[in-house]
Amino acid sequence: MAAVTATGVRREFGGREVLRGLGLSLGDGEFVALLGRSGTGKSTLLRIFGGLDAEYDGEVLVPERRAVVFQEPRLIPWQRVLPNVSLGLPPRASGGRDGLRRLSLDALAEVGLRDHARAWPVTLSGGEAQRVALARALVREPQLMLLDEPFGALDAITRSRMHVLLQELCARHQPAVLLVTHDVDEAIGLADRVLVLAGGVITFAAPVIVDRPRDPGDPAFIALRSRLLTELGVPAGGRGASEATGATGPPGATGPPEGKPHL
């Protein structure tokens, strides 16, 4: 069963075509990472899937229950953490006000912030706010989670802790996930499949066949990283680990590919 099917998706902004007949599908419970350079239309595609952009051509089918986590937490500043988590949920469908409250508290507990239910968003750190945003997405039990560079603004340590948390949450809730990122290591570390978006279409797709827990030093990991960087147009000479692959790469991980790319 598919969680997303999109065919022939086109979207232009003032005569500039960003998406040019893109096709994409996600399986139920599949974790897909979408890579691409800035301005290639990754976020545009995600906004279309999220229902925030209706000005596209083509056929797009998504599940009804879906949730978005943006790069910024986008919590409503004048509501405390708990009502932010339950934002927009009708109490009727969740067993009344008490039921909704319990559900939201459970979601907060899952991201380790049950004690912060009554805090104002302004008092949270960047990582905590993003965890609340994750709880707000999860409490809806989404069949599709759309993550738009959700960890891009976090520091390296917080980011790796968020990776672990996200993997746990996905294992428990099994939503289909579309993660937009430009961190190649993040994509390989988390996803079942990686895609590269360039020139308005998907130019590269490969399953991630690296044993879990995934080690950035694994030859299969290194080979896939190298292939993805080539697809993203990063020249072999200029591949500093911190520069192109994100801070999670080990220092020795920039050499030539040792294994065969898994396509």
């Binding site: 229902g51 986008r74 409503i76 707000r136």
Partner: peptide, 24 residues
């Protein structure tokens, strides 16, 4: 961005006005 967040999480019309726009 907050209005969009409200919309993606199911706030419509009056809910959006009451919870996001007027307090803002």
């Amino acid at each position: 961005k907050l209005v969009e967040a409200g919309q993606t999480f199911g706030l419509r019309h009056w809910g959006l006005v009451r919870k996001v726009i007027l307090p803002g």
